[in-house]
């Protein structure tokens, strides 16, 4: 089971560009359709859990499926398979990148790439806001969070913790009042 999960995740990890979300359809095809390790409904539950829990979605899903299919060995196989391709590829790039960067052609190319990267980070905000069904009032939350981090240099960790604490307190206060 270790090798089967390792191999499946290695394939998925090697051939998906664009991070965790791009991996989900491939994971579904391999794990649900082809191998039949878990059914469709459990897969959807898994995605919900992998997204709700902190950490990388691809790794979270590997842990869940590894555990369901093969216990501890399954977890080791799936996680290693998911992580190893990116680890090795980036390691190889990191080893040569310092020297490449000095090349005028590479330097020129990166001058064009840098603003494109900022756009690639910023543009999905539009879709994220739409799928979160954001309103004029709830838009204040991301705006406040962005300003605190950007101009206030607050660590994002505090912003996340504050969101959790404030939400729990406000529900508690609200239900306490209405039960009186």
């Amino acid at each position: 089971m270790f090798f089967q999960l390792f191999w499946t995740y290695l394939k998925i990890g090697t051939f998906t560009l664009g991070g965790g979300y791009a991996m989900l359809p491939l994971i579904q095809r391999e794990v649900v359709d082809r191998q039949g390790w878990i059914d469709e409904e459990e897969f959807l539950n898994m995605i919900a859990l992998a997204q709700a829990a902190p950490g990388l979605i691809a790794v979270n899903s590997a842990i869940f499926i590894g555990w369901r299919v093969g216990g501890w060995r399954g977890v080791c196989g799936a996680v290693l398979g998911a992580v190893l391709p990116s680890f090795l590829i980036i390691l190889a790039i990191a080893m040569v990148f310092q020297d490449w960067k000095e090349q005028p052609a590479v330097e020129a190319a990166f001058k064009g790439i840098r603003p494109a990267v900022v756009a690639l980070i910023a543009a999905p905000l539009f879709k994220m806001a739409k799928s979160a069904k954001i309103s004029w009032i709830t838009a204040l939350i991301p705006i406040a969070a962005a300003l605190l981090i950007w101009l206030g240099h607050v660590n994002p960790v505090w912003v996340i913790l504050a969101t959790i604490v404030l939400t729990l307190c406000s529900i508690w206060l609200f239900s306490y009042r209405s039960s009186k």
Binding site: V118, I121, A122, A132, P142, I149
Partner: peptide, 18 residues
């Protein structure tokens, strides 16, 4: 609520790079 905050985190990542 975390979903809203996360939008702010992504926005701040972009803003800090400008």
């Amino acid at each position: 609520m975390l979903r809203f905050t996360v939008i702010g985190l992504v926005a701040s990542a972009a803003l800090m790079l400008i």
